[in-house]
Each structure stands twice: as structure tokens, then as C-alpha cells.
Design a protein around this nucleic acid. Structure first.
Lengths: 109, 109
DNA sequence: TTGTTATTTAATTTGACACTAAATTAAGCG
DNA sequence: CGCTTAATTTAGTGTCAAATTAAATAACAA
């Protein structure tokens, strides 16, 4: 799913769509009206975003309202953290080791 | 730069590279040895990652050591938050309002 | 300088994907 | 049912990017 989420964010137009629905649900056509591409193009983007778990759709009659799926973004955040919070941990450990060394040094004096 | 960072993360192989250098710097060839693609392919991936601000390179003789650039990832985190932290903020404010209401209630007792 | 190692650049092929137009599904209304 | 609206699916096309081979650069050692 993470793979799909990152893949989905690749396309600038899909990121624009996400920013559009950030504050509330919008229909497919309402979203399409903000762009100069055809409705099918937007529909395809929405499908990608939905399969990536970044948006949810709510059907009401012939309309479909698209909105942000927050869990999708929290998962994404955790994944991105996986690239660097370990390095932070190492820095922290190095600092503690340094601190411990200083402490031992003081005791020897 | 954010565009480039997301674009860079699209490719699964580049994400694997990032996970490889997570714990410390590695040379281009050391990285390449983990994959079944040619060295030039890895070199090109590293270039993309560098231009995206996700890795830094340190030259030492004929070798080039690649390592994580943490700031690149924090920028990315902030960008991803931009899709949903507003909703979180609203939740937080609602919670605070709830808390305030409880507090007032207690004072009244 | 010549050779060797480490790595990148250049040129090319191949495959993926964003777009469009046309056809299709699905819901509601006369 | 037939019509309209809302939206998607399908099929075809053009563009871009990832991989490869071959050539070039860069640092060091003999």
C-alpha cells in the first residue's frame, strides 16, 4: 500500500487534487472543473488515489464525493520516518556514549 | 525540491538504496553490489536522490560515499502534513474545546 | 606517464503511464 | 421505459524515464 501511496503522489496533478479536497469532500466533476484536462483523466487519477488509500469515496445518487483518508497519510509519514529516525537514534546513542565517557573521565580525576 | 523528492521516492529501487544507506555511508559500488542491475543504473539513481536532496555525497579519492540527508526527509514530512494536519488541527481544537467545557463544568460544581 | 580502480556520462532501447475520444454503467426523473 | 446527468471503463497514442552497453573522467599507484 505504501508503494501505491508514494506512486500516487508522484503525479503533480494528483497532489493538486489532494489539496483541493483537503478541506472537504468534492465530486469528481467539481474536481475536474479546476483543471484543463478531461473528466476521464480526473476519474483515473481519483481511482489511483483511492487504491493508494489516500482518498475515500462516498456515493450519493449519481454523484460520488471524494475526500481525504487521513490514515493513508499517517501510514505514509511513518514510512518516511523509517528512512531517518534510526540515524537520529544513532546520534542519540553516540551522544550518550560521549556523555558516559566524559563522566568516567571525571571519576578518574 | 519537494517535487523532486517525491519523484525520487517513486522508484522502488531508490527506496531500497535509501534503506541501505540508512545506517551509514556506502560507496556507489557497495550499493550496486546489493542489486542485480549495472553500476551505471545505480549511479543514475544516486544522482536523482542527490538532486532531490535526499542523500549527500562525500568524495574520498576515487570513492564516493553516499549517505542520508536528513533535512530532505523533514521537508518531505512537512509537505505530507500539508495534506491533512489542518484536519488534525481542527480535531485538536475540538478536543481542547471539550476539555475547556469539562473544566468549566468542574468549577461550577 | 601508463595502468588500474571507481564512478559517471552518452546514446539507445524498451516499458510504463497520463492523456484523449468513444463507449458504457448507474441513478434518478418525465 | 426513454432521457439526462454523473462518472467510469476501454482502446489507442505520445511522452518520459529506467536499463543497458560503450566511452569518458578522476584519483591514485607503479
Amino acid at each position: 500500500m505504501i508503494d501505491k501511496a508514494i506512486q500516487a503522489l508522484t503525479e503533480p496533478r494528483r497532489r493538486d487534487i489532494l489539496h483541493l479536497v483537503r478541506y472537504g469532500e468534492l465530486t469528481s466533476s467539481a474536481i475536474a472543473s479546476h483543471f484543463d484536462v478531461t473528466a476521464p483523466a480526473i476519474s483515473q487519477h481519483l481511482k489511483v488515489l483511492e487504491e493508494a488509500g489516500l482518498v475515500v469515496v462516498r456515493r450519493a445518487g449519481t454523484k460520488r464525493f471524494y475526500g481525504i483518508r487521513r490514515e493513508g497519510f499517517t501510514e505514509l509519514m511513518h514510512y518516511i520516518e523509517s528512512f531517518w529516525d534510526d540515524s537520529l537514534m544513532r546520534l542519540k546513542e553516540a551522544a550518550e556514549e560521549e556523555e558516559r565517557r566524559k563522566h568516567d573521565h571525571n571519576q578518574q580525576q
